[in-house]
Computed example of a mutant assay.
Amino acid sequence: MQAEGQDSAPRQARFAVPPLTCDAHCHVFGPAARFPYAPSRRYTPEDKPKEVLAALHRRLGLGRAVIVQASCHGTDNRAMVDALRSDPTRYRGVAMIDDTTPDAELEAMQAAGVRGIRFNFIKALGGAPDMAVFHRAVERVRPLGWHIVLHVQGEGVAEMAPVIRALRMPVVIDHMGRVDPSLGVDGPAFRTLLDLLADERIWVKLSGAERMTLSPFTEALPFARALLRAAPHRVLWGTDFPHPNLTTPVDELELLNLVPDFAPKAEDRQRLLVDNPATLYGF
């Protein structure tokens, strides 16, 4: 990860990155002087504004991105929306909302390119939201044609499975469900995730390898391969830049270079990196 996000000497991916490849999970943080962090945040990141993200994507040769609201900004989506408006052809967004989010703000976010809302169920990041608030938010965005993004971890996949199955709209599971790699692909949480993918409404991101294991991330590969086999038309890929809450530096090019290891066929990479996000996000 480049500390200042500036363009540096070119480093090439080890495969032909398709044109219009989409980073379907990345964040912008601040700048705090313009977009303050939420008072209730569980972590305070370094500023990583839209210019830093754009520089990363230029280095990697990525043509599109989905900018996901992170918990450090709470339901104040201004930094994310500002980034979307800076390049509306290339960017889409995922917001965080609650009962205080005005209808007019939802309409403005729709116009800016927001296409989903995200809920965090990770205990270390604050735990599950009030489920009444969750369901009200779901019903508010359903008429907009948005989808639901869920950040769950390990056994949380099974805990949320009944809720996921009951939702009458597309659902995206972040970071391969953040399952414990030591349990293998036959672990109960991962088997539940594979079972969920039998539902055509459910998608999953083949991201977060750096949250499962350390470089060179080989422990994550069997999980990504299994998910791609289970739902080749409903998998997405993303960098998770700038990797909030991780203390170990991450090289996003190394993450990009994992793609041929779990998607060796060019047609699978085209779907994963270009076609699938275009379908879900309307590029």
Rank of each mutant, 00 (worst) to 15 (best):
A3W: 13
A3S: 14
G5V: 03
Q6D: 12
S8E: 15
A9R: 12
P10D: 07
R11V: 03
A16H: 12
L20H: 15
C22W: 03
C26M: 02
F29S: 04
G30C: 12
F35M: 05
F35D: 04
P39Y: 05
P45K: 03
K50P: 06
L56R: 09
L62Y: 07
R64W: 08
A70G: 12
G74E: 01
T75S: 08
M80K: 01
L84Y: 04
L84F: 09
S86Q: 09
S86E: 11
D87C: 11
D87A: 10
T89C: 09
R90V: 01
V94T: 03
P102F: 09
A104N: 08
E105C: 10
E107T: 12
M109R: 06
A111G: 10
A112V: 03
A112I: 04
R115H: 07
G116W: 02
N120F: 00
A124W: 14
G127Q: 11
A128D: 13
A128M: 13
F134T: 06
V138F: 10
V138H: 08
V141I: 15
R142E: 06
G145K: 04
G145H: 00
W146L: 00
H147T: 03
I148K: 01
I148N: 04
I148D: 00
L150M: 13
G156V: 00
P162S: 09
A166C: 05
I173D: 03
M176E: 00
G177H: 05
R178W: 06
P181K: 03
S182H: 09
D186E: 14
D186Q: 15
G187H: 05
G187T: 04
P188G: 10
R191T: 06
T192R: 14
L193Y: 02
L196E: 03
E200N: 14
I202N: 11
I202H: 14
V204D: 01
L206V: 06
L206W: 04
A209P: 11
R211K: 13
M212S: 06
T213Q: 10
L214A: 14
S215A: 15
F217Q: 02
F217H: 07
P222D: 10
P222N: 11
R229T: 13
R229P: 10
A231C: 08
P232V: 01
V235F: 00
W237H: 05
D240P: 02
P242R: 07
N245D: 15
L246R: 09
P249V: 06
P249R: 06
D251E: 12
D251L: 07
E252F: 14
E252I: 01
E254A: 14
L255P: 08
P260M: 05
P264I: 06
K265P: 08
E267W: 12
R269F: 13
D275I: 00
D275K: 10
D275M: 03
T279C: 13
Y281I: 00
Y281P: 01
